[in-house]
Simulated assay, not measured.
Amino acid sequence: MRVLLVEDDRMISDATGQALRDAAYAVDCVSDGGAAQLSVNTHQYDVILLDLGLPRLDGFHVLRHLRDHKIATPVLILTARDSLEDRVRGLDAGADDYLIKPFEMDELLARMRAVIRRHGGNSSPVMSNGAIRLDPSTREMEFERTSQRLSAREFSLMQSLLLRPGAILSRQDLEDRIYGWNEEVESNAVEYLIHSIRKKFGNAVIKNVRGLGWMVSKEK
Rank of each mutant, 00 (worst) to 15 (best):
S13H: 02
M215K: 12
R10D: 15
R198E: 13
K70F: 13
G53D: 09
W181L: 10
K70P: 00
A80D: 11
D176T: 14
L109Q: 07
D28L: 07
D22T: 13
D28G: 07
F155M: 04
F60R: 01
L212S: 11
A114Y: 07
M11T: 15
G90E: 09
L150W: 01
L169D: 09
M105E: 07
E85L: 09
I77W: 00
S147H: 09
V3C: 03
S217A: 13
L109G: 04
I100H: 07
V115F: 02
L193N: 03
D22K: 10
Y98N: 11
R139Y: 06
G202L: 04
L99V: 10
H65L: 09
Q37L: 11
G130Y: 09
R67L: 09
D97L: 05
D173L: 08
R89D: 07
T79Q: 05
Y192W: 11
D173Y: 03
M112Y: 01
S124F: 04
I178R: 03
G59R: 00
L99A: 06
L163H: 12
G213P: 07
V126Y: 01
K70G: 08
D32G: 10
A114D: 11
L174G: 00
R153W: 04
A167Y: 10
K199W: 05
I77K: 05
L84Y: 06
E7H: 02
V30D: 06
M141N: 01
E154G: 13
E219R: 13
V6T: 07
S151A: 07
E142A: 15
E186G: 13
S39E: 14
G17W: 01
A36K: 04
A35D: 13
W181G: 11
R133Q: 14
T138H: 09
L84D: 12
Q159C: 11
E104T: 12
I132S: 02
L99Y: 06
R145K: 13
S170T: 13
W214Y: 12
M158V: 04
D82P: 04
K220W: 14
R113S: 05
E184A: 15
G53F: 01
S137P: 02
V216Y: 09
V75Q: 00
D28Y: 02
E183Y: 02
V205S: 08
D22Y: 11
V62G: 00
H69F: 08
E154P: 02
D176A: 09
T138G: 10
S160E: 03
N41A: 15
D8N: 11
E107W: 05
A19G: 14
L66M: 13
Q159H: 10
E140L: 14
